[in-house]
Amino acid sequence: MRALLLRDLRLAMRAGGGFGLAMAFFLIVVVLVPFAVGPRADLHSAIAPGVLWLGALLACLLSLDRMFALDWEDGTLDLLATAPLPLEMVIIAKALAHWLTTGLPLVLLAPMLGILLNLAPEAYGALTLSLAVGTPALSVIGAFGAALTVGVKRGGLLLSLLVLPLYVPSLIFGADMVRRASEGGAVTTPLLLLAGITCGAIALLPFASAAVLRVNLR
């Protein structure tokens, strides 16, 4: 498990690993939004919570199809499935590696992009906290989608179609938490609901993902 995690991190850091692409994508999305909606600062602060969450979510989505596809193509997945490591742990290690290379950088980048969108000062803490709590769920749900589509050629579009509806609850609670914070309200309820989804997804989805991967490997 540790070995797999370290290997995935190392692969992500090496040339062609795609590390940092998600952050660059996040930056571009956030830069494009003011061009699309016009230069009104009050409008920017009103939509900032939603745009930041949506940007992070799309950036996360973008890197999902690599999660299993590369290991599938070069046969590593076959070999891992016959190794002593349970497939559920393979999924968890891969999702964790995905979160460390994609989710965590997005969490750290988001407050800086909040400045670009004129986010209310009270909301920075809530933004970071909501992304920190919510993005692990995005990685785990994404691992399920990636496992479903690993055998499909050019499955990227299908992956988005399958995963995005599953992201709805996390997006609603996450963005709502930031919005409430920017209006000076209490954030406990959405935070707890967001954390609940993350915990539930981490606890249960790896089993579904491993079952799906076994079907795809046979």
Binding site: P165, L166, F173, A208
Partner: peptide, 28 residues
């Protein structure tokens, strides 16, 4: 057979998330 297995699991997971979404949207 693989398609049947995969869509069945998607249907189970999707059902859970559909219910979750229903409550999330109500909250929203």
């Amino acid at each position: 057979d693989s398609a049947a297995d995969l869509t069945s699991i998607l249907c189970l997971v999707g059902s859970v998330f559909a219910v979750l979404s229903r409550y999330a949207v109500n909250f929203w």
